[in-house]
Write a protein that binds this DNA or RNA. Structure first.
Length: 1046
RNA sequence: GCGGGUGUGGCGGAAUUGGUAGACGCGCUAGACUUAGGAUCUAGUUUCGAAAGAAGUAAGGGUUCGAGUCCCUUCAUCCGCACCA
């Protein structure tokens, strides 16, 4: 029987499914292990070879753990809410649920073909009411909780109400939007509405007017991590800052715990670092400045309280609430003008102008609380309202931005820190003294001579003593904006009474997403849910029309897998006690700031409620790299560029006095080249891009008269085809006074495309690279016929070939490694590969490509090698007639050694997720066993188990051929026996002065002296010790022998 | 600018963590079997050299009997964050 992978794989996939081989239940007799993939958003494009990379790795890990006796939870589901399906719905009217369902089915089909060991009975979908019921439920708990800073824990809001009733807001240490002051009497006298408004200041899910990233095209707000470069990550539409009422999650309450608990998880340093960065904790001080002539307190945050003596001015963000109060009448116009100017600038513009210094003087002066110095107060957009207090004390000598500002507006600069080595405090050294973190203080009164760290402490002490400042910790992390003005998301279980939001009763959950007839916002800009009929509670109160963002459903999904069918609880106590949290989480690193931070917050909140027994969701995480595609290009001749290039070269080489003139045609400015010798103009089209090279000629050329030379386009093509550079020739001909054929104009889109083989002319100057479908390319050689038939406009294309060594015409493509994408025609589809090579080969090959965490290009040809290996593996169990042939004779020592080396390798490598080296170890082992002609059951039985995590189908087939009646999944991993691999001699490399010279087989029982004697006696040693003394012997048993001679 | 990663043949990548650099695979070269080869098998394949040998892990320096691995300096490159006070 031949290795018929398609039959084998189909057979066993059905067997696994029908016998529910991968179903897991709580089993307290076995240790648990939880292996999880980041669940996918089911997009319309389906999977490409990059997607399953992480899934294959986690599948191998899960199967391995199972063979090692663990009860392994390995589920899969779908992050089913998301923008693309909704955008599609807006365009076509198709319900997002329909699109999503269709995509999910396609994903499932593709995943099934790869042979994953998911327990599909535990599948979750975030858009399933039975699932989002618990997303909504968690939201209600957040709404009904506040965060106690003393006990560092979320608490029921009812406790807070009791406290208010007795003590008002006195001595309250809780997470809050802003500090409030009221007494118990005042609280008790408030109306319900007033009380509700106050509670919003403390709820963990709260509503507030806030600056948001508004994307008009998508009609919704976006979180910071959904915006990049002022554009939406999904879709790339412009995003503006806008103030709107939104739901927020008070994630900042957990900032410290999110930071500290990073120490307890096994994640890559880079992801931890991104998280630390995102949280952005900085310790410093808040300092209160007075304002001259006004009863105003201006609070700033600084990490460098030590430099207070060096403060020479203050800067407020233009949006700062005190700006108008302090601005003097003389400066009012200027300040208002500046505010308007900055407000109207988009985020993009603001970012583009980061280095430009701008600002306006308010006319007011702040008072330095320590020195009493008068400090001019400015406003400038380099100070951000969103960080600290939106106001700074500027220390131009030690901050590059303050420095630039001071220089620009001519403000004084006082140096207060000098490097210990520096002798002077000369102004010339100021620029070098920026960020002097470990210098000592000068010009600073009682701080003089102190090192920076000590000076910071001393200054904070002084501020506190005088009551003008305190030590303070500041975070970059902002509360998470939790509402979206979209349809395809979880509805909020919130209704409005008297304008105030109230949580629905839990018994009303799930609050089903209503159907609506159109998915756009309403005419008056309300979210799509406002279109829903009867979107009110039973009592008639209106229900919230916002929906939750994408990260709502993905924050706690790993918990729901533990008990997915529970309709009473999110998950049961029993399930969570057993499965706890994820032991190994595999997914992309791009979620470092979004999903992973929200998920950790969600988990900590549920931990505070006593639901989750763990404070961290994902104990260990591995981020798989991207699989890149290798794109192929044909080079399409760009006639315009070709002309430009030729002309420009001639100018440069001074072959010709070509000069520039400009003229106007159809109201558009055009540029031509003028040749004074002949008084002709070279009409080169595609004018815009010529400006840069034309500039120097402009003035001179304007004074010249002109005639016109047209360069015939048709001729250009002919000459390209003949392989000569025609433009140059035409110009030469014209200069020499020859007749030049007339110009035949053809619009660019009607020109016959000309493609040039890579080595013929791969110059960018002449040609545009055009992506070629990789299926039409083999070994970089284009299948020209297939390419011609690819698109209509290529039917008449002209190809300029190269000659191969046999003189045949070939068309060679260029190539580049890029992200896999449909538009680049470099996508490798897993289905095609499974079809051609089988799932086992695909799995092995994806692992063999390289280290999991690294990005690496997909090599289309490399998979052949892995396929050869799989067939070779199959042949180990079969004779030359393809008959199954395994013998019961005992294995030889060599065979056992080969096996046990592999066991060791696989066990060691699996923990470091170094699957590529395991595959190579399999290859080595199979090569050796083939050479030994080994067909012993004693070897092949365990070998079959060992390969089963990597290639489960072939393993299952061989397992049954070996005579087993259960699934190989239920087998036990072979036990490593070190005695099988030890030898009594070792082939030592013999080195002299560290340089390896020859090898020598020596017994391991030899003493150092015996080794030295043996080596010196070896004939090869003579030439290396000739005339020299042996000074030292380095002998490392089982490693090396090194003789130091001299 | 700050932070993190990476740098080894024509290519993807190994190297038991300081001990024979280039495992394994691709590609390439030669040969065998073949009507044929995008099949299979055998041998070779870091560079220079006929060989002996020499050089060699981005560059330079250091520690060591011995460095791809440790330390210092520089460069290149990728990925985050970025007016964060």
């Amino acid at each position: 029987m031949d290795y018929n992978f398609s039959e084998i794989e189909k057979k066993w996939q059905e067997y696994w499914r029908d016998n529910k081989i991968y179903q897991v239940e709580i089993d307290k007799n076995k240790p648990k292990f939880y292996v999880l993939d980041m669940f996918p958003y089911p997009s319309g494009a389906g999977l490409h070879v990059g997607h399953p990379l992480g899934y294959i790795a986690s599948d191998i890990y899960a199967r391995y753990k199972r063979l090692k006796g663990f009860n392994v939870l390995h589920p899969m589901g779908y992050d089913a809410y998301g923008l693309p399906a909704e955008q599609y719905a807006i365009q076509t009217g198709t319900h997002p649920a329909v699109t999503t369902e269709k995509n999910i089915n396609r994903y499932r089909e593709q995943m099934d073909k790869i042979g994953f060991c998911y327990d599909w009975d535990r599948e979750v979908r975030t858009s399933d009411p039975q699932y989002y019921k618990w997303t909504q439920w968690t939201f209600i708990q957040l709404f009904n909780s506040y965060y106690c800073n003393n006990c560092k824990k979320a608490k029921p809001i009812a406790n807070l109400i009791q406290y208010f009733e007795k003590h008002g807001a006195e001595n309250l240490n809780v997470a809050q939007s802003k500090p409030l002051h009221f007494t118990a009497d005042e609280w008790n006298a408030m109306s319900e509405k007033q009380q509700q408004e106050i509670l919003m200041n403390y709820r963990l899910a709260y509503q507030a007017e806030t600056m948001v990233n508004w994307c008009a095209e998508l009609g919704t707000v976006l979180a910071n991590d959904e915006v990049a470069d002022g554009l939406s990550v999904r879709g790339g539409y412009p995003v503006v800052r806008k103030s709107m009422k939104q739901w927020l999650l008070r994630i900042t309450a957990y900032a410290d715990r999110l930071l500290e608990d990073l120490e307890t998880v096994n994640w890559s340093d880079s992801v931890k670092d991104v998280q630390r960065n995102w949280i952005g904790k900085s310790m410093g001080a808040s300092v209160h400045f007075g304002v001259e002539g006004k009863d105003i307190d201006l609070e700033v945050f600084t990490t460098r309280a030590d430099t207070l003596f060096g403060t020479t001015f203050m800067v407020l963000a233009p949006e700062h609430e005190l700006v108008m109060q302090i601005t003097t009448d003389e400066q009012r116009a200027e300040v208002e003008e500046y505010i308007t100017r900055t407000k109207n600038r988009s985020e993009r513009e603001r970012m583009a102008e980061v280095r430009k210094v701008s600002g306006a003087f308010t006319g007011a002066y702040g008072i330095n609380p320590i020195t009493g110095a008068k400090l001019p107060i400015w406003i400038a957009d380099y100070v951000l309202m969103g960080y600290g207090t939106g106001a700074i004390m500027a220390v131009p000598a030690h901050d590059s931005r303050d420095f630039a500002f001071a220089r620009h507006f001519n403000l004084p600069i006082i140096q207060v820190v000098k490097k210990p080595s520096a002798e002077t405090t000369d102004p010339a050294t100021w620029e070098e003294s920026f960020d002097a973190k470990d210098g000592e203080l000068v010009n600073s009164g009682f701080l003089d001579g102190m090192p920076v760290k000590k000076a910071i402490m001393r200054m904070i002490e002084e501020l506190e003593k005088k009551g003008v400042g305190t030590g303070k910790t500041n975070y970059r992390l902002r509360d998470a904006i939790f509402s979206r003005q979209r349809y395809w998301g979880e509805p909020f279980p919130i209704y409005y009474k008297d304008g105030m939001p109230y949580a629905m009763d839990e018994s009303k959950l799930p609050l089903m997403l209503p159907s609506i007839d159109e998915y756009k916002p309403t005419e008056n800009g309300e979210p799509p849910l406002a279109r829903a009929k009867n979107w009110v509670t039973e009592e008639g109160y209106p229900i919230e029309t916002n929906t939750m963002p994408g990260f709502a459903g993905s924050s706690g999904y790993y918990l729901r897998y533990q008990d997915p069918h529970n309709d009473k609880e999110y998950f049961s106590r029993e399930a969570n006690d057993y499965w706890q949290n994820v032991d190994l989480y595999i997914g992309g690193a791009e979620h470092a700031t979004g999903h992973l931070i929200y998920s950790r917050f969600w988990c900590k909140f549920l931990y505070d409620l006593g639901l989750s027994c763990k404070a961290e969701p994902f104990q260990r995480m591995i981020n798989q790299g991207m699989i890149q595609g290798r794109s192929s290009f044909a080079y399409r001749v760009n006639i315009e560029k070709l002309c430009e290039y030729a002309v420009w070269n001639m100018i440069k080489d001074k072959k010709m006095g070509v000069e520039f003139i400009k003229n106007y045609k159809d109201g558009r400015r055009q540029f031509d080249f003028f040749c004074p010798e002949k008084g002709i103009i070279l009409d080169v089209k595609r004018v815009g891009s010529l400006e840069k090279l034309a500039e120097p000629w402009e003035e001179y050329a304007e004074s010249k008269g002109l005639k016109i030379l047209m360069i015939p386009n048709g001729e250009i093509m002919d000459d390209c085809i003949n392989g000569t550079n025609l433009v140059e020739q035409k110009i030469k001909d014209a200069v020499a006074g020859k007749d030049v054929p007339s110009f035949v104009d053809r619009p660019a889109h009607k020109r016959i495309p000309i493609f040039v083989s890579k080595n013929y002319t791969g110059r960018d100057e002449y040609s545009d690279p055009i992506h070629v479908d990789i299926n039409m390319v083999r070994n970089d050689i284009l299948d020209v016929e297939a390419f011609r038939n690819w698109r209509d406009d290529l039917k008449e294309a002209v190809f300029i070939y190269e000659k191969d060594k046999d003189g045949n015409d070939i068309f060679v493509c260029g190539s580049e490694i890029e992200k896999m994408s449909k538009s680049k025609y470099n996508v490798q589809n897993p289905d095609d590969l499974v079809e051609k090579y089988g799932a086992d080969t695909l799995r092995l090959y994806e692992m063999f490509l390289g280290p999991l965490e690294q990005s690496k290009p997909w090599d289309t040809q490399g998979i052949e090698g892995t396929f050869r290996f799989v067939r070779k593996f199959w042949r180990l169990y079969h004779d030359e007639f393809n008959q199954f042939n395994v013998s019961d004779e005992p294995a030889t020592a060599a065979e056992l050694k080969c096996l046990h080396k592999l066991i060791k390798k696989e066990e060691d490598a699996i923990e470091s997720i170094s699957f590529n080296t395991v595959v190579s170890a399999f290859m080595i082992c199979v090569n050796e066993l083939s050479d030994l002609k080994c067909n012993k059951r004693e070897i092949l039985d365990p070998l079959c188990i060992m390969i089963s995590p990597y290639a489960p189908h072939i393993a299952e087939e061989l397992w049954h051929l070996l005579g087993h009646y259960n699934s190989v999944v239920e087998a036990s991993f072979p036990v490593y026996d070190e005695s099988k691999t030890v030898e009594n001699s070792f082939n030592y490399p013999i080195s002299f002065n560290g340089k390896m010279r020859f090898n020598m087989e020596l017994s391991l029982t030899m003493t150092a002296d015996e080794v030295q004697a043996a080596v010196l006696a070896a004939p090869e040693a003579a030439k290396w010790i000739e005339g020299k003394q042996v000074r030292k012997l380095i002998y490392v048993p089982n490693k090396i022998v090194n003789l130091v001679v001299g």
